[in-house]
């Protein structure tokens, strides 16, 4: 069994499941949005803000941004552990990978917080 402290979930299975579930949520959100724009080709401000003021929609949006966060993190973590490895580029790989992972976390956190701010507003 290969141990890795930086994977998100408890196991490969939970990562894998999370990847699938988040993809479903993102797809549903995308479909919903496409549907919305088909029905309202050029929505007014009232329509748009009305849509996003309902609690259900806010929860849907929140779930989607969390899905994007998880999906992106797992995906990027996989890519980094594929290519930025000691095997491929030598001992400097570990610090580079750590740095890139931290940067990725920062970006993801930033987007999540920003979305929360948009949805609920902190001020």
């Amino acid at each position: 069994m290969v141990k890795s402290v930086t994977s998100l979930g408890r196991s490969g299975l939970s990562d894998w499941l999370l990847q699938r579930v988040s993809a479903l949520i993102m797809s549903a959100y995308l479909l919903f949005m496409v549907g919305f724009f088909v029905l309202n080709p050029s929505p007014s401000y009232e329509q748009w803000s009305g849509l996003h003021s309902s609690l259900a929609m806010r929860i849907f949006s929140l779930l989607t941004i969390l899905s994007i966060a998880a999906h992106a993190w797992i995906g990027i973590w996989c890519v980094l552990t594929d290519y930025i490895t000691v095997r491929l580029i030598g001992p400097k790989a570990t610090p580079i990978r750590m740095f890139l992972q931290l940067a990725m976390i920062a970006v993801i956190l930033f987007y999540v917080v920003w979305t929360l701010d948009i949805l609920w507003g902190f001020n």
């Binding site: 069994m1 290969v2 890795s4 994977s7 979930g9 196991s11 490969g12 299975l13 990562d15 996989c78």
Partner: peptide, 11 residues
């Protein structure tokens, strides 16, 4: 149990 990590199978 030995396969349930992020690498062994899930890569």
């Amino acid at each position: 149990a030995n396969l349930d990590d992020p690498f062994s199978v899930f890569r």
